[in-house]
Write a protein that binds this DNA or RNA. Sequence first.
DNA 1: ATAGTAGGTTACTTCAAGTAGGAAACGGTA
DNA 2: TACCGTTTCCTACTTGAAGTAACCTACTAT
Lengths: 190, 190
Amino acid sequence: MMTIAEAVFAERGYAATSMDEIADRVGVSKPMIYEYFGSKEGLLVACIRQVRTELREQTAQSVIGARSPEEALRNGLVAFFRFTDDHRRSWELLLRTETAVVGPAAVAEIETARQEQIQLHIALFSAYMPDADEQSLEAAAEILVGACERLSVWYVRHDDVTPEQAAEHIMRMTWFGLQGEVTQQDDHPQ
Amino acid sequence: MMTIAEAVFAERGYAATSMDEIADRVGVSKPMIYEYFGSKEGLLVACIRQVRTELREQTAQSVIGARSPEEALRNGLVAFFRFTDDHRRSWELLLRTETAVVGPAAVAEIETARQEQIQLHIALFSAYMPDADEQSLEAAAEILVGACERLSVWYVRHDDVTPEQAAEHIMRMTWFGLQGEVTQQDDHPQ
DNA sequence: ATAGTAGGTTACTTCAAGTAGGAAACGGTA
DNA sequence: TACCGTTTCCTACTTGAAGTAACCTACTAT
């Protein structure tokens, strides 16, 4: 039942999906769904929760037995991207809720904004990292944009943090990781 | 007119806002808004586009005149977080569209999922970075989660990339930046 | 056999997006 | 000044989907 709802949400988008349609596909009547989930949003929440649990379990599983923090982190990351592959639909729902919820035009607009920013970063990086392949540059730019977006959410919850400090947090994590690539002679310690 | 729409969207949330309400507040009738923007989503797109333009201009401005890539990046980041401060409302719309669009329960669910992940990372980090302050740990965890989310979007668009490669991209950018903090004796080059 | 209940359905209400058709103001012409 | 076309905007409707009320069927216990 939630499986079907999840599929329909991912397929049509949350807003474009009617409860009648879900009820139809499930082969049950609408009030039944309201009986179980209370509302359309309740159904969405239930779907999200299920996916979330699954993701958490899979990544947690992958980390146990790691012998170093580096290994733990890498294992977790690999598990995360594997999950993306295996549950493409669910992933849409959990990590791209905006896409599932708002119409396609608005999503396109936001995605365009991001891509602009990303292209700008790629241009900046590539000037100083001539040896890096295109894929790494793209990935680096995406990571940077994701980091900014997420940290800005954190940032607004912390009135005591200055813009300079927030920027510094990102610099510490990304730049000094990048710098090894820029110089090309300063290989990563360990 | 878009100013008002933006404010109402940010205040009530996109879904919870009716076109009648916006029309009322603007002091014009509903068909007028449809004349200009075509649909509710069209209005949202227009608002997003405006904010996006402003953000792009402000960050672009901040970068010119930088003497090194590091300086350029830092300036851009600072400008970005300043923008967050100055345009709290607009920022909601552009960077937290999911929040503005879906109901509060679903947002809470997703945010909880993220926080779980973040707490996990904080625990992992803090074991190896005893000297780091709480704020830095939090920021690092948020950045990592943001990086994962964003890169996963990129990842699904690239069928030729393996989960291991995606994980490696994140490791390169974040871990080798973090490692300087872990060892505490290996100060950042330059 | 019958009363009560669990589980489900049909058919309604309500509310908001989007639209059609008309009123009013304005501008040009005699 | 009176009249007609055009533009501009609003009132009032249609449509569609979320959520609900009232009813119906089948099963169980006395």
